[in-house]
Amino acid sequence: MATRKKVLLKVIILGDSSVGKTSLMNQYVNKRFSNQYKATIGADFLTKEVVVDDRVVTMQIWDTAGQERFQSLGVAFYRGADCCVLVFDTTAPNTFKNLDSWRDEFLIQASPRNPEHFPFVVLGNKVDLENRAVSTKRAQQWCQSKNDIPYFETSAKEGINVDIAFQTIAKNALAQESDEGIDSAFSPSLTLGSSSDSNNRPNSSDCSC
């Protein structure tokens, strides 16, 4: 039995510009929505602690920071993702068509160990708007054809389905996480900065009892 570790899940959100990626994150984490559209500024990543199957999980949701606008997301963005959320705008058919290329792009860049079973979740956003152009059925069919990707219709503005969608994202990301054995809780890679700095000084002269 593997030792339980404190889990940090990295979730990345992909999709065309202005489908509402940042708004979905903000609605989920901060319960806030701003109607005024502008290209994402200040959106980096947000963290939220969630409880999944009795476990406290820290979910880190990474925004594209606008770098998707001219297809210029670097490979560094994709590193170590535990789940990939694909977002389209239910009123803009092109954003739905592009899901294919976003999914392919993710699989190429992130090159996950097990591409067939990597957890994706698809969100059809802006269902609060009248001018719907992508039917639920069409979206569901696409998701089924890609190894049954879970599909949710959301409204970041009204907060519709946002919580349940992210709860599923956390659950699937966690299920994906393999029982890597006892060692994985303290991975050998280092994140710089305050938290890991302090507990990693073998030669410090403090009390040695």
């Binding site: 959106a43 770098q67 670097g74 560094a76």
Partner: peptide
């Protein structure tokens, strides 16, 4: 220290910060 995934990650980190603060990227 050596960066995980290679040194190519380093410039990209700075680019990410630029983008977060509104920088526009076009490769």
């Amino acid at each position: 220290l050596f960066p995980m995934f290679g040194c190519g990650e380093i410039p990209q980190c700075f680019c990410r910060l630029c983008a977060v603060f509104g920088g526009v990227y076009w490769l």
